[in-house]
């Protein structure tokens, strides 16, 4: 760990100014990811701006949806009655995130911006273009069992680790951002980037930009939803693959659908082809299976992660089955 300047800021404008004004400055929320990165020498900021006292922790229902503060704790969101009632995919995804201890500390904004679990990135010493641009990608020719299936590049094959982001993508959520240039909102789909030849960039945020809240539109509230997550342990592990689905079902017919995949790309991955396939059909086990297969269309496995393809198909089928109350 390298020395850094630590400041706790109580004012949004000042936090933005500090984040934008001083080079190599990062925000600290719950610290569950950032502190690990500091300890392992992966993040080496000159300055840390502690934003945990900013007024971003409320969870509120509005006429057009729900506004979840970026500093709301994962545990509070998961347990929130409105979330449980209207956004079960979100509640499930958060309920299966980390452990109760971590969820009591971790914030939603921090969750979306957590860095990849790629082993080569995390060990702090192996070749990794994301951590040390130009050093090569250790995972590409190494232990790639968890590598991406979609949207990867020669430079980086890492996946995004968040469960929350996958559920939010299926719910058509947006993140509200405050920055030096004012406020803006970004659809969750466009918050994260693909690695391309700049794998060290994870998100669309500019220096100094803060996530203030997540907005989940009302529309998704009435839809049939589910989140299915697959991992090696029964708990306390990031997804190997996961799927969030949200279906507008009218008289047994799928009128609209959103399907998001986790653990398979550098960002939560929207499966539009699957959505198209589902719309206008009646959900039954055959369709669920067909949709699962369709979700793997275009997957590009490496030497060691091909088994993720059938697992992805099945986790999508499972999420659909759960959403539709199928056996």
């Amino acid at each position: 760990m390298q020395p850094f300047a630590y400041r706790k800021i109580h004012d949004v404008a000042a936090a933005i100014a500090q984040g934008a004004g001083e080079p190599n400055t990062v925000f600290l929320a719950g610290g569950t990811d950032l502190v690990q990165l500091l300890q392992d020498g992966i993040a080496r900021p000159a300055g840390i701006v502690d934003i945990s006292d900013l007024p971003f922790s409320s969870i509120a229902t509005t006429i057009d949806g729900m506004r979840i503060g970026a500093l709301a704790k994962l545990a509070d969101v998961a347990d929130h009655p409105q979330v449980r009632a209207h956004y079960p995919a979100l509640a499930t995804a958060l309920g299966e995130t980390a452990s109760p201890m971590v969820r009591n500390m971790a914030t939603t904004g921090g969750n979306l911006l957590q860095r990849t679990r790629c082993l080569y990135f995390r060990d702090g010493v192996s070749s990794c273009n994301k951590r040390e641009p130009g050093s090569g990608c250790g995972a590409l020719r190494g232990e790639d069992a968890r590598a991406a299936l979609f949207g990867a590049s020669e430079a980086c094959v890492a996946t995004h680790a968040s469960d929350l982001a996958v559920a939010l993508l299926a719910l058509d959520a947006e993140v509200l951002v405050a920055g030096p240039a004012g406020e803006r909102s970004i659809p969750v789909e466009r918050l994260h980037t693909l690695p391309g030849d700049t794998p060290w960039i994870d998100s669309d945020l500019e220096p100094g930009e803060l996530i203030s809240a997540i907005f989940v539109p009302r529309g998704a509230a009435g839809w049939a939803q589910a989140y299915a997550k697959l991992r090696h342990r029964a708990s306390f592990e990031w997804p190997l693959v996961s799927a969030a689905v949200s279906l507008a079902v009218v008289d047994g017919m799928i009128e609209d659908a959103r399907v998001a995949l986790g653990g398979v790309a550098h960002k939560p991955w929207r499966a539009e082809d699957v959505e198209t396939l589902l719309i206008g059909r009646e959900l039954d086990p055959v369709l669920a299976r067909e949709a699962g297969e369709a979700a793997t269309e275009g997957a590009r496995p490496l030497a060691g992660n091909a088994a993720k393809i059938p697992l992805l198909a099945r986790v999508v089928s499972r999420a659909l089955a759960d959403a539709g109350g199928l056996p």
């Binding site: 679990r117 250790g138 592990e237």
Partner: peptide, 29 residues
Amino acid sequence: LSEEAVFDRHCGRVMNANLSDYLVPVCAD
């Protein structure tokens, strides 16, 4: 069901040398 040191055959390094990736059972297991 879960424990395995992931060893990179090229660089000869234990890649999951921490307790979030070297998976000992948790209560739910």
